[in-house]
Design a binder for these strands. Structure first.
Length: 345
DNA sequence: CATTCGTGGAA
DNA sequence: TTTCCAAGAAT
């Protein structure tokens, strides 16, 4: 197999099969997407599906059409707009990055992979992707899709994540000088649409003639993966303190889980369940708390049962928010609020 | 190098 | 129902 043959075959496939995405210039159109849009979409797509990220991309673009507009935004507005998309460090770094570009780079994104790597929230993947897609630089863009495609193409036996360096080396051997942005997107589109994790559509793949896993007949067994640790379970209590139509919220500390986001007041989250007495002792204010059900939620590295308590009372030191404003909450708290308020929002 | 960090859709 | 997992980065 030769790299030029693979490039030619995949780019031809991409010309005919590229997905139309809001942040993408059609292949062969001679147009290039605004670096701001490339960056915004790439950050939103980190560990996030296209259908989930798309409405957020459109909403952000409407609210903040340029990197300088985003740099001037209020933190609370950006965090609220990100609510529900997850991995909230991305939103914090999004603002840091926008402000760095505005203040240190005259509002213009660096056009090199190395320059992009210095910006907050841009790691090896995103820096390479923006360099390739926005600036047509020949970068080795390796995401989960590319790792899967390469692992099958070369039948890499080493399991992930240990195989990452080897997969990146193999991917680098395929990168050429022609159409770097299209090449990067072609490889990712192939992984997303054809070379899928389950039930890959090999009869539609332009690379089967070059694919070692296809030749072996066990393409779906790649990439190999190391067994992952099981997810522990935790318990906590969330408090729904209402004042008429308003709900008491708090701002979570700027680091850690759900950092910087609005939230319901909660107890600590721990392995042992909370008794009723413990739940009342951990309440943010003294009030006539009544049990209001519970919700379960699954985070990346633990699952959570949140017992709910509700009371009607005034309080200081909280952020009183109308029920219509609860969309600014992360999903776990939106779920808790809907349940605890008896689905009245 | 291992851990921390969300969410919702699909099978 | 359970499991997997999607255009990863920061620490």
């Amino acid at each position: 197999m030769t790299a030029p043959e693979i490039r030619t075959a995949l780019l031809a496939w991409y010309d005919a099969n590229a997905r139309a995405l809001p942040w993408r210039a059609p292949p062969g159109s001679g147009r290039r997407t605004d670096p701001y849009r490339v960056w915004l979409s790439e950050v939103m797509l980190q560990q996030t599906t296209v259908p989930h990220a798309t409405p957020y991309f459109l909403k952000f673009l409407q609210a903040w059409p340029s990197v300088t507009a985003l740099a001037a935004a209020d933190d609370a507005d950006v965090m609220a707009a990100w609510a529900g998309l997850g991995y909230y460090a991305r939103a914090r770094n999004l603002l840091k990055c926008a402000r760095a570009v505005a203040e240190d780079h005259g509002g213009v994104f660096p056009d090199s992979e190395a320059g992009l790597m210095r910006l907050p929230g841009l790691g090896p993947y995103t820096a390479a992707a923006v360099a390739a897609i926005a600036f047509d630089r020949p970068a080795n863009v390796v995401d989960g899709n590319v790792e899967r495609v390469i692992s099958r193409l070369f039948a890499v036996e080493e399991p992930l994540p240990a195989a990452k360096p080897e997969l990146k080396r193999l991917a680098a051997g395929l990168v050429g000088d022609e159409r770097p942005g299209d090449w990067a997107q072609a490889l990712m589109d192939l992984g997303a649409v054809v070379c899928r994790p389950k039930a890959p559509l090999c009869d539609r793949c332009p690379l089967t003639a070059h694919c070692a896993a296809y030749a072996r007949g066990d393409h779906e067994s790649f990439p190999r993966k190391s067994p992952k640790a099981e997810r522990p379970h935790r318990h906590g209590v969330a408090y729904l303190l209402t004042r008429g139509d308003e709900v008491a919220l708090v701002r979570r500390p700027p680091r850690g889980l759900l950092g910087g986001m609005l939230a319901l007041p909660t107890s600590e989250w721990r392995a042992a369940p909370f008794s009723a007495d413990e739940a009342l002792a951990a309440a943010p204010v003294a009030a006539a708390w009544r049990s209001a059900g519970a919700v379960d939620h699954v985070f990346t590295h633990f699952s959570l049962t949140l017992r709910l308590y509700r009371a009607e009372a005034d309080a200081a030191g909280v952020i009183w928010t109308r029920r219509s404003g609860l969309t600014a909450l992360p999903s776990v708290f939106l779920k808790a609020a809907k349940t605890g308020l008896n689905r009245l929002i």
